[in-house]
C-alpha cells in the first residue's frame, strides 16, 4: 500500500468513515451481497412499519371472517385467505415482527453469552478452559432443536421463554469460535506488546483482543440470523413457540400444512418469507466477510 500523505483525517471519526468506505467498496464488488443487504433492509422496514400498514389489521389482531375462507390470491387478498378467512398477506407481514425480533434476540443473547464464555476460556486456559468448554460440548451433543423443544416445553409457551430456550442451545457455537480466536490473538505481537507495556488482563481483553475478534462474531451472527429465524419458526411449527392468534411465520406454516396442496397459498407465502429471510441474512454474512477481510485492505 502506498502512503496517502496528502489526505489527512482530522479525527478518529473521519478515519473510521474512510475505512468504512473502503469496506463498502469491497462489499459492492459482489452483487449477491448487495442483494442480501437489500433483502435484510426490506425485511426490517416491513417488520417496523408493516403492522401499521397492513390492509386487514383486524385479522392480525385475531378476528375471523368465515365468509371469506380459503380465497385464492386476488387483488383484494394478495396472498389469499386462510381457513379462518384471514388475509394471509397481513399475517405474513405482521409475522415478520415476531420472527425477526425473536431471531435477533436469540442471536444477540447467544453471541453475548458465547463471547463471554469463549473469551474467558480462551484467555485463561487451563482448567477454566477445560470446565467451560466441556459444558459447551455437552450442549453440542444434543441437537439444538431438541434441546430448545425440551426447554421451551419446560418453561411453557411465550416469546420470551422461546428466546431463552433457543439461546441456551445457541451460545456454545459462539463460545467455540471466540475461544479459538482469542487463543490465536493472544499470541499476536500487538498483544505481547501490550503485555510488555504492563497492561493488565482486563485491558488486554477489552482493548486488544475483543475488538479484533468482533469481525468473525458479527459474520457468524449474520449467518446465524437465518437459522435462528428458522428455529423460531420450527418451534412455532411444532406448536411450542408463539401461540395464535399472534401471527408468526412458523406457526402460520404449521397450521397451513393440513390444507396442502389444495389451499397452497396458505403455506407457500409464510414459507417463502422464511426462505427469503434465511437467504438474505446468509448473503449479507458472506458479504460482510469480504468487508472485514484484513487481507483485502486495498
Amino acid at each position: 500500500m502506498t502512503t496517502l500523505a496528502e489526505k489527512v483525517p482530522a479525527s478518529a471519526t473521519s478515519s473510521r468513515w474512510e475505512n468504512a468506505r473502503r469496506g463498502f467498496y469491497r462489499f459492492r464488488n459482489s452483487w449477491l451481497s448487495i442483494a442480501g443487504l437489500l433483502i435484510v433492509l426490506v425485511l426490517f422496514i416491513i417488520a417496523v412499519i408493516g403492522p401499521s400498514i397492513v390492509p386487514y389489521p383486524e385479522h392480525v389482531a385475531g378476528s375471523v371472517s368465515t365468509a371469506t375462507r380459503f380465497q385464492p390470491p386476488s387483488a383484494l387478498h394478495w396472498f389469499g385467505t386462510n381457513e379462518l378467512g384471514q388475509d394471509v398477506f397481513s399475517l405474513v407481514v405482521a409475522g415478520s415482527q415476531i420472527s425477526l425480533l425473536a431471531g435477533l434476540a436469540v442471536v444477540a443473547v447467544g453471541a453475548l453469552v458465547g463471547t463471554l464464555v469463549g473469551a474467558v476460556a480462551g484467555y485463561f486456559g487451563g482448567w477454566t478452559d477445560e470446565v467451560l468448554m466441556r459444558l459447551a460440548d455437552l450442549k453440542l451433543t444434543v441437537p439444538s432443536l431438541i434441546l430448545a423443544m425440551a426447554v421451551a416445553a419446560a418453561l411453557g409457551p411465550g416469546i420470551l421463554n422461546m428466546v431463552i430456550a433457543i439461546s441456551i442451545s445457541w451460545w456454545p457455537g459462539y463460545a467455540r469460535l471466540v475461544r479459538g480466536e482469542v487463543i490465536a490473538k493472544k499470541e499476536e505481537m500487538f498483544v505481547q506488546a501490550a503485555r510488555a507495556l504492563g497492561a493488565g488482563t482486563g485491558r488486554i481483553l477489552r482493548r486488544h483482543i475483543l475488538p479484533n475478534i468482533l469481525t468473525p462474531v458479527i459474520i457468524k451472527m449474520s449467518l446465524d440470523m437465518g437459522f435462528a429465524i428458522l428455529t423460531v419458526a420450527s418451534l412455532g411449527f411444532i406448536g411450542i413457540g408463539v401461540k395464535p392468534p399472534t401471527p408468526e411465520w412458523g406457526s402460520l406454516l404449521s397450521i397451513a400444512r393440513t390444507y396442502m396442496p389444495d389451499y397452497w397459498w396458505t403455506a407457500v407465502f409464510p414459507g417463502s418469507a422464511i426462505f427469503l429471510a434465511v437467504f438474505g441474512f446468509n448473503l449479507l454474512g458472506d458479504g460482510l466477510r469480504d468487508v472485514f477481510d484484513p487481507k483485502a485492505r486495498r
Binding site: A12, S15, F190, N212, P294
Partner: peptide, 10 residues
C-alpha cells in the same frame, strides 16, 4: 504485527 489494527495512532 506489533500495532493493534483497530486502534488509532493516538
Amino acid at each position: 504485527a506489533s500495532l493493534n489494527p483497530r486502534m488509532t495512532v493516538h
